[in-house]
């Protein structure tokens, strides 16, 4: 199928879906509206809400807060993940000692930490950043750990035979290998940074997309909830596209077949 035809089909799905939603929410079928607008709103109301947010400019403040929280969560979580992943992989004893605790914390659904972070760090952005960090950290940590552990012994031996000392092995062999694993999980970890921010906002905040959705929900403004969800998904799509661009530049050396690790 050509790209144009594919795009047409994709848009077609959206149009059909929205049209059905609009019809079921406004037209009575057998004397009954299948999707009562009070609970399901209508696509036109949702669109009107989105347009209003952007035309009055109220949405920007929330978008920027959420974006900022996501970026901080991603940067801090990744940095910690890389450092600890490296450390554990190079010190098997440390890794063995901490293993049960790492597994324990990772098994914990991170949402339950949100109230604790709100208590400790207040209702500002840092409690959301902390939640995002706990999500991003483990993904990056596990990938970097794996990346350092699974450096091919032949490549390592080759480095040593070419005269590399420990520091040079770190820089030319371990580091690129670990980074490649980290970048291969970039989509997941960036996605989780956004999840952490939004869930945190939803559970208690004064601004952000999650806050917007939560506020709308509080006054039974279903159109507002859907509008918030719509803006959120477009936001994530744009970020994901940015990640793809970064990835294409950084991972040119990798064969296409091995993509999709992590």
């Amino acid at each position: 199928m050509s790209r144009l035809a594919l795009l047409a089909c994709q848009i077609g799905v959206a149009i059909v879906g929205l049209a059905l939603w609009q019809v079921f929410a406004t037209v009575e079928i057998f004397g009954k509206v299948l999707l009562p607008p009070f609970f399901f709103s209508t696509p036109l109301d949702v669109a009107a809400q989105v347009v209003k947010w952007f035309s009055t400019g109220t949405i920007w403040k929330h978008l920027i807060i959420t974006l900022w929280e996501s970026i901080l969560a991603f940067v801090i979580g990744s940095t910690l993940g890389v450092l600890v992943g490296f450390w554990f992989a190079r010190q098997p004893l440390i890794a063995a000692i901490f293993d049960p605790y790492v597994k324990m914390v990772n098994a914990l659904p991170r949402v339950v930490l949100a109230p604790i972070f709100a208590l400790w760090l207040g209702l500002g952005i840092w409690s959301k950043v902390a939640l995002g960090v706990t999500l991003v950290f483990f993904i990056v940590f596990f990938n970097v750990y794996q990346g350092v552990k699974e450096v091919s012994t032949t490549v390592l031996d080759n480095g040593r035979m070419l005269g590399m000392n420990d520091r040079q092995l770190m820089r030319h062999v371990y580091w690129p290998s670990a980074l490649s694993w980290m970048f291969s999980s970039l989509h997941t970890s960036v996605g989780f940074a956004v999840v952490g921010a939004v869930v945190g906002e939803y559970l208690g905040a004064a601004a952000g997309l999650g806050y917007l959705i939560q506020q709308a929900e509080g006054i039974f403004d279903v159109a507002g909830v859907f509008a918030g969800m719509f803006v959120l998904s477009v936001f994530v799509l744009i970020i994901d596209y940015g990640v793809t661009l970064v990835e294409r530049r950084l991972l040119v050396w990798r064969p296409v077949a091995s993509e999709g690790r992590g």
């Binding site: 490549v155 080759n158 290998s177 050396w253 990798r254």
Partner: peptide, 13 residues
């Protein structure tokens, strides 16, 4: 100098 049997080039270079 050692030429290995398996692929030993640095794939990221």
């Amino acid at each position: 100098g050692y030429l290995f049997q398996a692929d030993a080039l640095f794939p990221w270079k």
